[in-house]
């Protein structure tokens, strides 16, 4: 979130991906939310020293992204942004965990390095799954799915309000911030005092906007209840989607697919 304008553009791009039309896009959002959950739980449930068994899980994000025709480069870039954070935590593992677990010829690999690598792969998989979920579903549909899965309406409705006004307010914030930067030479003027009043102004404007929105709601007969339409249904297709992937995930969780594949191939060669 370094550059404000960049962040806004990024948000808009991800949001627009969800308006695509594909087999995956057309599925009910609940199916995609549930599948993503099963996927993430399966991935993170591995022991900390598990490394190779994680690789077959790449099948899910890659296949989903391809079927939904999401731009691969964009997804990779999004994931790439998060890797440094995983690395910061993961790289501490080799310091504390120096037991040699595997020797590859002259190379002694400690548990710390294995678990560090494992953390990075986990990050890529879980972050990828989340990005793809939004890319093929859209925030509105995710919210609707959450509501149908039992989230209180008060929460989902204000979640939608939040999402709607992110676009308006970040642009407003970007304008204010730009104005401050342009009038402050170098670092001077970017301190706490100007920050407090800048954010304060922004807050007041936000508050007044909330009042106007409420006014607009009242003007159209709002009585405290939100009505929404039913757009899709959880049918056989959705059931098949969730069940199919879940079975695969559990199988891959219980049996190291990479190991199995590796032996299959090395066995063939020998």
């Amino acid at each position: 979130m370094r550059s404000i304008d960049g962040a806004i553009l990024d948000l808009k791009r991800l949001d627009l991906l969800a308006t695509g039309d594909s087999l995956i896009h057309r599925l009910d959002a609940r199916a995609k939310v549930l599948t993503t959950l099963v996927f993430i739980i399966s991935v993170v449930s591995f022991d900390r020293y598990e490394f190779t068994a994680l690789f077959p899980f790449f099948l899910y994000p890659v296949v989903t992204a391809s079927l939904a025709n999401l731009p691969g480069g964009y997804i990779v870039r999004k994931i790439g942004l998060v890797i440094p954070f995983a690395l910061v935590v993961g790289v501490l593992n080799p310091l504390f965990d120096r037991e040699v677990l595997v020797r590859l010829g002259p190379l002694a690999v400690t548990g710390g390095w294995i678990s560090c690598a494992s953390i990075i792969i986990r990050s890529v998989l879980t972050v990828g799954a989340a990005v793809i979920l939004v890319g093929v579903t859209g925030f509105l549909a995710v919210c609707q799915a959450l509501e149908k899965l039992g989230t209180p309406r008060t929460f989902t409705v204000q979640l939608l309000f939040l999402y709607r006004y992110i676009f308006v307010l970040t642009e407003e914030g970007a304008r204010a911030s730009r104005a401050r930067e342009l009038r402050s030479c170098g670092r001077k003027g970017l301190g706490l005092a100007s920050f407090g009043s800048l954010i304060g102004h922004l807050l007041i404007r936000t508050w007044l906007r909330a009042e106007r929105i409420h006014m607009a709601m009242l003007a159209r007969g709002f009585t405290g209840e939100f009505h929404s339409r039913q757009v899709s249904a959880f049918g056989w297709r959705e059931l098949g989607y969730v069940a199919g992937w879940s079975i695969l995930f559990v199988a891959l969780r219980l049996e190291n697919g990479a190991q199995w594949l590796g032996r299959l191939v090395t066995g063939l060669l020998s």
Partner: peptide, 10 residues
């Protein structure tokens, strides 16, 4: 400001 009036998701 239409942004005040258009508060729903679509």
């Amino acid at each position: 400001d239409p942004d005040d009036q258009l508060f729903m998701p679509t």
